[in-house]
Design a protein around this nucleic acid. Structure first.
Lengths: 199, 199
DNA sequence: GTCCTAAATTTTATCTATAAAATGGAGAAT
DNA sequence: ATTCTCCATTTTATAGATAAAATTTAGGAC
């Protein structure tokens, strides 16, 4: 578990990209970042490569990396992929969720509804959506969905910062109730509508 | 376009993992590989990181990387993801395919049917499936599907090497015909059946 | 003032060296 | 024979240095 330096750099940079602190198109220069973290540029390179793997940065060989753009076409693509994949995960999750899992989900739901600002709400909303899918037990599927969530999060931070206001999310509650009844079909239907509407 | 050393190492290693020359569980030691490619271990590290990003290797910090396992559960997961994602891509591809695209697909189909051994057939089959989806114009979706294709390819190489024999693939032909008619529904139905059966 | 060329600077990609962690093995204690 | 501990070896992670490519800057021609 001993976190490597590259791990911490990756965590910090991805956070900054998600929240928009590092805007799309920004150049990511190795030794600037290395100085900021007080290391050599080698672990920085590794962190940048991982950003690229998760779709947060793009490299042109010998020209460096820049933060990926977030055009409307890509957002549509992300939504369509989420609509295709998340119901698949949810279906399995409904079958396999233990009472403990359902408790975790309900906690995540309440914490999300209680958020008092866009940034904290976004993180908690993402945690809720992760929680309802985690019980599916399909690691590869979950990791692809995680990357899609990150792309959606970037979009929310850049385009919904103003329009956000606090509210209790009825869809979240409906999904949880359907999961408790082991009603996968309803849960998936609500989720699909929720995704199409939310973005 | 100037390929970096890490690029070539990645290309060669991923090829070896796909064909099974590097079996699941194999340790990937940095300086052994570095010696084999006559470089230092730094570009090797980068190549290994990219293998990890594409699901071909797994790292435990400070313990090195090993080639990922291919258990039956993961294979099922890959199939379910393909069944969810490839019809989505195909639907868009059917709408957007140009006559030139359709020609490329037909060429890929014929080349695939003409393959005379399991390894060359696998590569050509993968090229065909890539070709029918490429016109969708959704780069993120395509890159996820590419990784799924790679996982399927590993499975074929390790478990179907014996059972393979030459034949002309009727499903491939049916998909292409439906695409020419712009009949997305039929194309997707055939593809779904094809995927469920083939693995 | 604009455009082009060439030197200066910056930045990436790679190499060599080093520190720290993990693995493997030999010998001692039980 | 088995287990434990300590040392030697291997291997990973990071640092610092270097070469090559790309970008910027400066100066001159028009």
């Amino acid at each position: 578990m001993t976190a490597t330096i590259a791990d911490t750099i990756y965590a910090r940079l991805s956070q900054q990209i998600i929240t928009g602190a590092l805007p799309a198109g920004e150049k990511l220069r190795q030794d600037h970042i290395a100085r900021a973290f007080d290391t050599s540029h080698v672990p920085v390179r590794e962190a940048l490569l991982r950003l690229e793997a998760h779709g947060l940065a793009q490299s042109e060989p010998r020209r460096g990396m820049r933060v990926t753009a977030l055009d409307p076409a890509e957002i549509r693509e992300v939504i369509e992929m989420r609509v295709a994949l998340e119901p698949l995960a949810l279906q399995h999750a409904v079958q396999r969720a233990t009472p403990g899992d359902l408790q975790v989900i309900d906690d995540a739901r309440l914490v999300c509804d209680a958020a008092e600002g866009m940034p904290s709400w976004e993180a908690r909303n993402r945690a809720f959506h992760r929680a309802i899918l985690t019980p599916c037990g399909m690691p590869r599927l979950l990791s692809v969905i995680d990357d899609l969530h990150i792309a959606s999060a970037r979009h929310l931070h850049t385009h919904w910062r103003k329009r956000w206001r606090q509210r209790t999310d009825a869809d979240h509650a409906a999904i949880l109730m359907a999961m408790k009844r082991r009603d996968a079909e309803t849960a998936c239907d609500v989720l699909r509508r929720h995704l199409r509407r939310a973005l």
